[in-house]
Each structure stands twice: as structure tokens, then as C-alpha cells.
């Protein structure tokens, strides 16, 4: 499964990539900002979008809105990773078309499972 991970913090990108590739059956493509993700979206064919929310430049929800304009990304599941996890905030994120939210700090050991659990809600 190919994940497009957009995250401005380099260390968190490294941890997420290691966690998902070493401990799960994932291939992780990463971008450090929303703009870069959008610029390379045409040639990127992920199965899942994993987006940080608070980023310099375009935020996660803004990035998702732009990515959705690409036909091949219009309907693929999207998940946010954020420290902002109030129920009201999660509701807002879901309204932008995301499946759900993975809370930061996340557990690298269960990150892959957390993503798969959210994907199950997409297919159910």
C-alpha cells in the first residue's frame, strides 16, 4: 500500500516512514509541505493520503482540497495527523473529507494498524 505523507517536521517524517516501512507493508512517499504535494500530485499515485494539519503555507485541509481536484486523488482516503484532537476539531476535519485523525504523539508500533483501522471504516 502506498501512502503519501505530507509533514513539515523532518524528524516526524523519518519516524513515520521507518514505522510504516519497517513494521508494516507500506511504501511511503513524503513531501515537506502542501505546495510540494500538490506540485507532484500528477505523477503520484498513492492509496492513502496522510496529512499534517498545521503546516507553513497550505494547511492539511487546504492541501487536501487542492489534491482532491486531481481525478486520480478525488476519492482516495485521507487521514490527518495532528495534536489538535478535540471532538469539535475532529468533526471539523471530517467535514473536509478525511476519514479521521491520528493523534500526535502517535505510537510508531501501532501507526500502521491505526491507519488500517481507519481504512476499514472507509470500506465498511
Amino acid at each position: 500500500m502506498i501512502i503519501l505523507h505530507v509533514e513539515d517536521d523532518e524528524d516526524i517524517r523519518d519516524i513515520a516512514k521507518m514505522a510504516l516501512e519497517m513494521m508494516g507493508d507500506f511504501t511511503v512517499i513524503q513531501q515537506d509541505c502542501g505546495e510540494a504535494a500538490i506540485a507532484t500530485a500528477a505523477e503520484t499515485k498513492p492509496d492513502v493520503l496522510l496529512l499534517d494539519v498545521m503546516m507553513p503555507g497550505k494547511t492539511g485541509p487546504e492541501t487536501l482540497a487542492e489534491l482532491r481536484k486531481f481525478e486520480h486523488l478525488a476519492n482516495i482516503p485521507a487521514i490527518y495527523m495532528t495534536a489538535r484532537v478535540q471532538p469539535s476539531e475532529i468533526d471539523q476535519f471530517k467535514k473536509t473529507g478525511a476519514l479521521g485523525v491520528i493523534e500526535k504523539p502517535f505510537d510508531p508500533v501501532t501507526l500502521g494498524k491505526d491507519i488500517m483501522d481507519l481504512l476499514k471504516t472507509h470500506t465498511e
Binding site: 524528524d11 516526524i12 523519518d14 519516524i15 513515520a16 495534536a83 504523539p105 502517535f106 505510537d107 510508531p108
Partner: peptide
């Protein structure tokens, strides 16, 4: 954010 990286690295 830094705690995410710290906890993640130690978790791995």
C-alpha cells in the same frame, strides 16, 4: 511536535 519525534524514536 518534538515529543512526537522523541516518543516515536524511542518507541522504534
Amino acid at each position: 511536535s518534538p515529543l512526537t519525534a522523541i516518543k516515536g524514536a524511542m518507541g522504534l
